[in-house]
Simulated scan of single mutants.
Amino acid sequence: MALTTLFYCIPAFGEAQSSANTGQGVAEPLLMLTLENPPLAYTHEDGSVTGVLVQVIREAARRTGHEVEFRIDPWKRVIREVSEGNADAAFNAGVTEERKSWGMYGETVLIDETFVFFSRGPKALTRTLDEAAQLRVGIQLGYYYGERFDQMLKDRPFHAVEVNQTIPRNLRLLGADRIDVFVGDLLPTLYYIKKLGLEDEISIVTEKESGLPLVVSTSDTYVAFSRRSVDPAYVETFDKALQSVKASDTFDTILGSYQLNVPELPETP
């Protein structure tokens, strides 16, 4: 999805560099990997990789004099390929001690992942989930929802917990009244609600206290560069470029093009 309002800002970050390793000559494409997760990153019907984060990263890299090739892989393969230096970066990656052993992170957050409750029709719950014993909860396999909610899953205060692999599956269970709430990543879940035509059927659960969306957890994600294939100096250069993109209206312009009904969120989850 081309952006016609972006301007070239390469001079602000020095002359174009040939590769993330050498910093000389004509830039070679960087190879960046992530998982299929629309609208953040996904495979277009023509086979190309696109998405909100793909467009943001492409613009940031362009401002450093680089092009980027993107590839969608299962997440375990993404981590393996970048850690071994077969790819230059993994994006939409959280920070862990294990990942810092092979990856380099800038200071600029790529995106704040926000997990909220979704329900069939309007629903309000207390911030402390006093209603837990009455709730049938849908979650996604392999997702980390933050320390507080993951502890609740271990303590099992809910009436039932259903684990599924995909967002569409959980949305169908909501529609069939098989679960009461689904804990979903905000932007991807809104994307599928729109794609499946469920805007009038599925709602974001609100807090009884504030009327704002009931946020389960938030998680900062970044671009994690491979220590084996990328010069640390380039990580700093890219970070400044990404910061400039995030400071402008570029991100909002890109996200707005997907026409998702993104609500106002509470300042503190």
Rank of each mutant, 00 (worst) to 15 (best):
L3M: 13
T4V: 13
T5E: 12
P11Y: 03
G14S: 13
S19I: 03
N21F: 00
T22Q: 14
T22I: 11
Q24H: 07
L31Q: 06
T34K: 05
L35K: 12
E36H: 14
E36D: 15
P38C: 11
P39N: 10
P39E: 07
A41K: 05
T43D: 00
G47A: 09
S48L: 01
S48Y: 04
G51V: 06
V56W: 01
V56Q: 09
V56R: 07
V56T: 12
V56K: 02
R62W: 13
T64I: 09
T64A: 04
H66D: 02
F70I: 07
D73I: 04
P74W: 01
I79H: 01
I79K: 12
R80A: 14
E81V: 04
V82F: 08
S83V: 00
N86P: 00
D88H: 14
A90I: 00
N92S: 13
A93L: 09
A93W: 00
K100G: 01
W102M: 01
G106Q: 08
G106S: 12
L110M: 08
T114K: 10
F117C: 10
R120K: 15
G121S: 03
A124Y: 03
R127M: 02
E131T: 07
A132Q: 05
R136H: 13
R136W: 04
E147R: 13
R148N: 13
R148K: 14
F149T: 01
D150N: 15
D150H: 10
Q151I: 00
M152A: 10
N164D: 08
I167S: 01
N170A: 06
R172V: 03
D177L: 09
I179G: 09
F182H: 10
V183E: 11
V183N: 10
V183I: 14
Y191K: 04
Y192R: 06
K194L: 02
G197L: 04
G197C: 02
G197D: 05
E199G: 03
V205Q: 08
T206P: 00
L214C: 02
V215I: 15
V216E: 03
D220Q: 15
Y222L: 02
V223D: 06
V230I: 15
V235S: 12
E236V: 11
T237G: 07
T237M: 12
T237S: 06
A241E: 03
Q243W: 09
F251S: 01
D252S: 15
D252N: 12
D252R: 14
T253C: 05
G256L: 06
S257N: 08
S257Q: 12
L260T: 05
N261Q: 13
E267I: 11
T268V: 14
P269L: 09
